[in-house]
Write a protein that binds this DNA or RNA. Structure first.
Lengths: 204, 204
DNA sequence: TACATATGTTTGCGACGCTTACATTGGCAA
DNA sequence: TTGCCAATGTAAGCGTCGCAAACATATGTA
């Protein structure tokens, strides 16, 4: 009854039931705990309680498995960002700040996955689905910025300033994960967001 | 005479002569051409014309080889940035712009290495040498920003705005490499640098 | 009940990272 | 010059991994 069936559960029957999902979860877990370079599909198989050949009934190859993990990650991230934007009224500074913060929070909460989301898609702009998802996510930022500045969604100005903001939070997220700011070099994140927000989104 | 001894040269004698340097160069070349996930030390050995066991007379393990490649990359990058800063008078906008551009240019010229420089150092802030090098590089930016704003090097303000600029060029570099801006989403880099420079370095 | 299909296992191959034992060489001391 | 040592190479082998092929088992439907 009270047997613990944690995130990673044992297989009971010959047929696993949900190997595909379980494998993606196992890989995500390993990426987070051991790092993206220190795990193997074989290890994920052991976690899922399945032979090392089993994954290839569900996925073409290793890359397709990682792509699946990244896809789910992008979905979740977009969700969080949309929630952050929806939680505040259009045009408020708080809305922009919350959006940026949600991005940074995601990176901090799931550094391994975050890193993989971007390193994997490198040189794979041919992947329609992932590309579209990235575009949609950027779209959230453009929308919030356009609202804030009260300019059209399609304006070059909105696109430019939204991208600048994205560059900023993206860069900060990676530098933070890479621990480039340690000791006395540390910087206050609140102050940082403030200064950037003011600089990038000037009230006319 | 006119025999081509390119970057990758054949071994003539039993003793290679400069296997250490040659291996680092071979790995750098492979990282750039095949991607950081698609090469092996064994392949680098073939390029250097040496058995797959030879590297381990010079390096403890694979990671130490990659670390060597990254170290040289960081050296070169810092050099380029210092050159860019030195090429313009202190306090000029051109100086700040050139510094940022040198960073982006490096990323664009050597995307594989650039990416590896940051992904490898993740979770290795214990590496004194690499950490110090990163700090020194950030120091260049802080110096240029402090000059520009005519404020003390040690001021919180200089540190904060320098880091913000770093976040920006860093983020843009990665998003660019990951090809996150394609087609009509494309943004003019010059405009971008301008808008960010103005926003982050306000003349009082 | 029988059979097609989905999904698992076993076995095996080639590549890789790395170790160990051995071979070759260049440089230095006698 | 000779002789030896340390540096630096090779060959062979171990364990793991990604992946494929052949085979086994469960599920759903005629």
């Amino acid at each position: 009854m009270a047997e613990g069936k944690g995130l990673i559960q044992e297989k009971k029957n010959y047929h696993h039931g949900n190997l595909k999902g379980q494998l993606l979860e196992a890989v995500r877990h390993l990426v987070e705990t051991k790092g993206a370079d220190e795990f193997s599909i074989a290890e994920a198989c052991r976690l899922a309680g399945v032979s090392t050949a089993a994954p290839y009934k569900h996925f073409k190859d290793r890359h397709e498995i990682l792509r699946g993990v990244v896809f789910l990650g992008m979905l979740r991230m977009r969700e969080r960002m949309q929630e952050a934007a929806d939680a505040h009224a259009a045009g408020t500074v708080a809305r922009v700040a919350a959006l940026g913060q949600s991005y940074i929070d995601f990176a901090r909460a799931e550094p391994g996955l975050f890193r993989m989301m971007f390193s994997l898609t490198a040189g794979h702009q041919d992947d329609e689905e992932l590309s579209r998802m990235g575009d949609e996510t950027l779209g959230i930022v453009v929308g919030v910025v356009a609202d804030h500045l009260a300019i059209p969604l399609e304006s070059e100005e909105a696109k430019l300033r939204a991208y600048a903001l994205w560059c900023f939070v993206h860069g900060h997220s990676f530098l933070m994960l890479d621990d480039k700011l340690h000791g006395e070099k540390m910087v206050d994140e609140g102050q940082l967001l403030l200064i950037v927000g003011e600089g990038m989104l000037p009230r006319v």
